[in-house]
Lab assay of single mutants.
Amino acid sequence: KRRTSFTPQALEILNAHFEKNTHPSGQEMTEIAEKLNYDREVVRVWFCNKRQALK
């Protein structure tokens, strides 16, 4: 499976959402994914990886 390359704009939006809520609901992740035109699973993994990076 290929790595997803996030655009700077997408990272800005993802980081803004992460600052508000580090554990978004499934519905929220779906909405973010649709807004950014990414697969929901990609957004889920991004949040998971971001949380791990802060440990």
Score class of each variant (00 low, 15 high):
residue 13 I to H: 07
residue 47 F to G: 01
residue 45 V to L: 13
residue 1 K to R: 05
residue 43 V to C: 05
residue 14 L to M: 04
residue 20 K to N: 06
residue 49 N to F: 05
residue 47 F to K: 02
residue 16 A to C: 07
residue 41 E to Y: 04
residue 46 W to H: 02
residue 5 S to N: 10
residue 32 I to Y: 14
residue 54 L to I: 05
residue 22 T to P: 13
residue 6 F to R: 03
residue 36 L to V: 12
residue 13 I to N: 09
residue 4 T to Q: 06
residue 54 L to Q: 07
residue 6 F to M: 11
residue 3 R to C: 05
residue 54 L to M: 09
residue 31 E to K: 04
residue 18 F to M: 01
residue 1 K to T: 10
residue 41 E to L: 02
residue 35 K to H: 06
residue 13 I to Q: 08
residue 22 T to A: 13
residue 44 R to V: 14
residue 1 K to V: 01
residue 10 A to P: 00
residue 22 T to W: 07
residue 20 K to R: 12
residue 33 A to Q: 03
residue 31 E to D: 10
residue 24 P to R: 00
residue 3 R to I: 15
residue 55 K to T: 15
residue 32 I to A: 02
residue 1 K to I: 15
residue 47 F to M: 02
residue 24 P to Y: 01
residue 47 F to R: 00
residue 23 H to A: 11
residue 3 R to M: 13
residue 47 F to L: 01
residue 50 K to N: 06
residue 5 S to T: 15
residue 31 E to H: 14
residue 46 W to Y: 14
residue 44 R to T: 13
residue 34 E to G: 04
residue 9 Q to W: 07
residue 52 Q to C: 09
residue 10 A to C: 08
residue 51 R to H: 04
residue 27 Q to P: 12
residue 14 L to I: 01
residue 7 T to Y: 02
residue 18 F to V: 02
residue 17 H to P: 00
residue 41 E to N: 07
residue 51 R to P: 02
residue 41 E to T: 10
residue 7 T to H: 06
residue 17 H to N: 09
residue 1 K to A: 07
residue 39 D to V: 03
residue 39 D to R: 08
residue 39 D to G: 08
residue 42 V to M: 14
residue 54 L to Y: 03
residue 41 E to I: 03
residue 40 R to G: 14
residue 44 R to D: 07
residue 16 A to I: 07
residue 40 R to Q: 09
residue 25 S to A: 07
residue 32 I to S: 00
residue 30 T to S: 06
residue 1 K to S: 05
residue 11 L to M: 09
residue 18 F to Y: 15
residue 33 A to C: 06
residue 4 T to P: 08
residue 11 L to Q: 03
residue 19 E to Q: 03
residue 5 S to L: 11
residue 36 L to G: 01
residue 18 F to R: 01
residue 49 N to I: 06
residue 23 H to L: 08
residue 44 R to P: 03
residue 25 S to P: 04
residue 36 L to I: 13
residue 51 R to G: 05
residue 23 H to Y: 05
residue 12 E to L: 03
residue 17 H to Q: 13
residue 7 T to K: 02
residue 13 I to W: 06
residue 2 R to V: 14
residue 15 N to K: 08
residue 18 F to N: 00
residue 49 N to A: 11
residue 32 I to R: 00
residue 52 Q to D: 09
residue 11 L to R: 06
residue 7 T to E: 14
residue 20 K to C: 05
residue 32 I to F: 02
residue 1 K to G: 15
residue 9 Q to V: 10
residue 2 R to T: 14
residue 6 F to W: 12
residue 28 E to D: 11
residue 49 N to V: 08
residue 10 A to T: 04
residue 38 Y to M: 13
residue 1 K to Y: 03
residue 17 H to E: 14
residue 23 H to Q: 12
residue 14 L to D: 00
residue 25 S to G: 11
residue 31 E to I: 02
residue 38 Y to W: 10
residue 49 N to L: 05
residue 25 S to I: 04
residue 28 E to F: 07
residue 3 R to V: 13
residue 9 Q to R: 15
residue 50 K to E: 08
residue 53 A to S: 13
residue 16 A to K: 11
residue 47 F to W: 07
residue 14 L to V: 02
residue 9 Q to K: 11
residue 17 H to Y: 10
residue 34 E to N: 02
residue 13 I to G: 04
residue 44 R to A: 12
residue 17 H to S: 10
residue 25 S to D: 07
residue 44 R to S: 09
residue 9 Q to H: 11
residue 43 V to P: 00
residue 38 Y to Q: 13
residue 8 P to M: 14
residue 35 K to W: 04
residue 23 H to M: 05
residue 25 S to Y: 01
residue 12 E to Q: 04
residue 23 H to G: 06
residue 28 E to C: 04
residue 18 F to I: 02
residue 49 N to P: 02
residue 35 K to E: 08
residue 25 S to E: 04
residue 32 I to E: 02
residue 28 E to W: 02
residue 4 T to V: 09
residue 20 K to Q: 07
residue 12 E to K: 02
residue 9 Q to E: 03
residue 20 K to P: 00
residue 34 E to Y: 06
residue 48 C to D: 08
residue 41 E to D: 09
residue 2 R to C: 04
residue 47 F to Q: 01
residue 53 A to F: 05
residue 49 N to H: 07
residue 25 S to V: 06
residue 11 L to G: 03
residue 26 G to S: 10
residue 46 W to M: 01
residue 33 A to K: 03
residue 39 D to K: 05
residue 54 L to A: 12
residue 46 W to E: 00
residue 30 T to G: 08
residue 54 L to P: 14
residue 46 W to I: 01
residue 52 Q to Y: 04
residue 2 R to F: 11
residue 6 F to E: 07
residue 16 A to M: 13
residue 24 P to L: 03
residue 46 W to D: 03
residue 1 K to D: 07
residue 18 F to S: 02
residue 3 R to A: 08
residue 42 V to P: 13
residue 10 A to D: 12
residue 5 S to E: 15
residue 10 A to S: 05
residue 18 F to Q: 00
residue 38 Y to R: 12
residue 48 C to T: 06
residue 49 N to S: 11
residue 10 A to V: 06
residue 44 R to K: 06
residue 20 K to T: 11
residue 16 A to L: 11
residue 53 A to V: 06
residue 55 K to G: 06
residue 20 K to S: 10
residue 37 N to H: 10
residue 40 R to K: 13
residue 11 L to P: 00
residue 44 R to N: 06
residue 12 E to H: 15
residue 42 V to R: 07
residue 19 E to D: 11
residue 7 T to W: 03
residue 1 K to W: 05
residue 24 P to C: 03
residue 21 N to Q: 11
residue 24 P to W: 04
residue 21 N to A: 06
residue 18 F to C: 02
residue 39 D to E: 06
residue 8 P to N: 10
residue 31 E to M: 14
residue 7 T to V: 03
residue 2 R to H: 08
residue 51 R to F: 04
residue 26 G to F: 07
residue 16 A to Q: 13
residue 12 E to D: 12
residue 10 A to E: 14
residue 25 S to R: 09
residue 48 C to M: 15
residue 53 A to W: 10
residue 33 A to S: 09
residue 4 T to S: 13
residue 41 E to V: 03
residue 39 D to F: 02
residue 1 K to Q: 15
residue 11 L to N: 00
residue 7 T to I: 02
residue 12 E to Y: 02
residue 11 L to I: 15
residue 19 E to P: 00
residue 17 H to V: 12
residue 22 T to H: 15
residue 26 G to K: 09
residue 22 T to S: 13
residue 20 K to L: 08
residue 16 A to T: 09
residue 52 Q to I: 14
residue 52 Q to G: 06
residue 14 L to K: 01
residue 6 F to T: 08
residue 45 V to A: 12
residue 2 R to K: 06
residue 13 I to M: 06
residue 12 E to W: 06
residue 15 N to V: 04
residue 52 Q to E: 15
residue 21 N to R: 05
residue 30 T to C: 07
residue 15 N to A: 05
residue 2 R to G: 11
residue 51 R to E: 04
residue 23 H to N: 12
residue 51 R to D: 03
residue 49 N to D: 08
residue 1 K to M: 05
residue 50 K to R: 13
residue 22 T to D: 11
residue 53 A to P: 03
residue 21 N to W: 02
residue 33 A to L: 02
residue 43 V to Q: 00
residue 50 K to D: 00
residue 26 G to W: 15
residue 22 T to C: 14
residue 29 M to I: 03
residue 37 N to R: 11
residue 44 R to H: 06
residue 15 N to R: 06
residue 21 N to F: 02
residue 7 T to M: 03
residue 5 S to K: 14
residue 28 E to M: 02
residue 28 E to V: 09
residue 48 C to V: 15
residue 13 I to T: 12
residue 48 C to R: 11
residue 23 H to F: 09
residue 54 L to C: 05
residue 49 N to M: 07
residue 21 N to V: 04
residue 30 T to H: 11
residue 46 W to Q: 01
residue 32 I to G: 02
residue 43 V to K: 00
residue 35 K to A: 10
residue 30 T to F: 06
residue 16 A to Y: 08
residue 11 L to F: 03
residue 53 A to R: 07
residue 21 N to L: 02
residue 27 Q to F: 01
residue 46 W to C: 00
residue 45 V to H: 08
residue 40 R to W: 12
residue 3 R to T: 08
residue 37 N to Y: 15
residue 52 Q to K: 13
residue 4 T to K: 09
residue 53 A to G: 12
residue 3 R to E: 14
residue 45 V to I: 10
residue 2 R to M: 14
residue 37 N to F: 04
residue 22 T to I: 09
residue 15 N to G: 09
residue 6 F to C: 08
residue 50 K to L: 01
residue 36 L to T: 04
residue 24 P to T: 02
residue 11 L to K: 04
residue 10 A to W: 01
residue 13 I to P: 00
residue 52 Q to V: 07
residue 55 K to R: 13
residue 5 S to V: 13
residue 4 T to W: 04
residue 12 E to P: 02
residue 47 F to Y: 07
residue 4 T to R: 06
residue 17 H to R: 09
residue 1 K to N: 14
residue 8 P to K: 08
residue 14 L to C: 01
residue 48 C to N: 15
residue 46 W to R: 01
residue 4 T to I: 04
residue 31 E to C: 03
residue 47 F to D: 01
residue 45 V to N: 06
residue 15 N to I: 01
residue 22 T to K: 10
residue 40 R to Y: 10
residue 5 S to I: 15
residue 33 A to N: 01
residue 22 T to Y: 06
residue 11 L to C: 03
residue 33 A to M: 03
residue 8 P to G: 08
residue 43 V to M: 00
residue 42 V to E: 13
residue 46 W to S: 00
residue 55 K to Y: 04
residue 44 R to G: 10
residue 45 V to C: 06
residue 28 E to Y: 09
residue 30 T to L: 06
residue 4 T to L: 11
residue 51 R to Q: 12
residue 27 Q to D: 15
residue 21 N to T: 07
residue 24 P to G: 00
residue 25 S to N: 10
residue 25 S to L: 06
residue 25 S to H: 15
residue 53 A to H: 13
residue 39 D to W: 02
residue 24 P to N: 00
residue 11 L to H: 03
residue 39 D to N: 08
residue 42 V to Y: 09
residue 32 I to D: 00
residue 23 H to S: 14
residue 45 V to S: 15
residue 26 G to E: 15
residue 34 E to R: 05
residue 27 Q to E: 14
residue 10 A to F: 02
residue 15 N to Y: 02
residue 32 I to N: 01
residue 5 S to W: 09
residue 35 K to T: 15
residue 3 R to H: 05
residue 30 T to V: 07
residue 3 R to L: 14
residue 27 Q to V: 10
residue 23 H to K: 11
residue 15 N to S: 07
residue 5 S to Y: 08
residue 39 D to P: 14
residue 7 T to P: 14
residue 21 N to K: 04
residue 2 R to A: 14
residue 49 N to Q: 14
residue 43 V to S: 00
residue 43 V to F: 02
residue 18 F to E: 01
residue 50 K to G: 03
residue 27 Q to N: 09
residue 31 E to R: 12
residue 23 H to R: 13
residue 41 E to C: 09
residue 18 F to W: 10
residue 26 G to H: 06
residue 5 S to G: 14
residue 32 I to T: 01
residue 46 W to K: 00
residue 47 F to C: 01
residue 25 S to T: 13
residue 36 L to W: 02
residue 50 K to S: 06
residue 4 T to M: 08
residue 19 E to L: 11
residue 19 E to H: 09
residue 41 E to A: 06
residue 32 I to Q: 04
residue 18 F to K: 00
residue 2 R to W: 04
residue 20 K to D: 05
residue 26 G to I: 12
residue 46 W to G: 02
residue 48 C to G: 12
residue 46 W to T: 00
residue 43 V to R: 00
residue 50 K to A: 09
residue 5 S to R: 09
residue 26 G to D: 10
residue 52 Q to T: 11
residue 36 L to P: 02
residue 6 F to V: 13
residue 5 S to C: 11
residue 8 P to S: 14
residue 31 E to P: 03
residue 49 N to C: 05
residue 24 P to K: 00
residue 22 T to R: 13
residue 14 L to S: 00
residue 1 K to H: 04
residue 5 S to A: 13
residue 12 E to R: 09
residue 8 P to Q: 04
residue 30 T to M: 15
residue 41 E to S: 08
residue 15 N to W: 04
residue 9 Q to S: 06
residue 43 V to A: 02
residue 24 P to D: 01
residue 26 G to V: 15
residue 7 T to N: 04
residue 21 N to S: 07
residue 16 A to R: 10
residue 28 E to I: 12
residue 2 R to P: 09
residue 7 T to Q: 08
residue 19 E to W: 08
residue 12 E to A: 03
residue 54 L to E: 08
residue 22 T to M: 12
residue 17 H to K: 14
residue 47 F to S: 01
residue 8 P to I: 07
residue 12 E to T: 12
residue 1 K to L: 03
residue 20 K to E: 12
residue 51 R to T: 05
residue 42 V to K: 14
residue 43 V to D: 01
residue 14 L to Q: 01
residue 7 T to F: 01
residue 2 R to L: 13
residue 30 T to Y: 05
residue 38 Y to T: 15
residue 55 K to D: 02
residue 34 E to D: 03
residue 46 W to A: 02
residue 18 F to L: 03
residue 40 R to V: 12
residue 19 E to I: 14
residue 27 Q to T: 13
residue 30 T to K: 07
residue 11 L to A: 05
residue 47 F to N: 00
residue 7 T to L: 05
residue 23 H to W: 09
residue 40 R to F: 14
residue 38 Y to S: 14
residue 19 E to A: 14
residue 30 T to W: 03
residue 28 E to G: 02
residue 13 I to L: 12
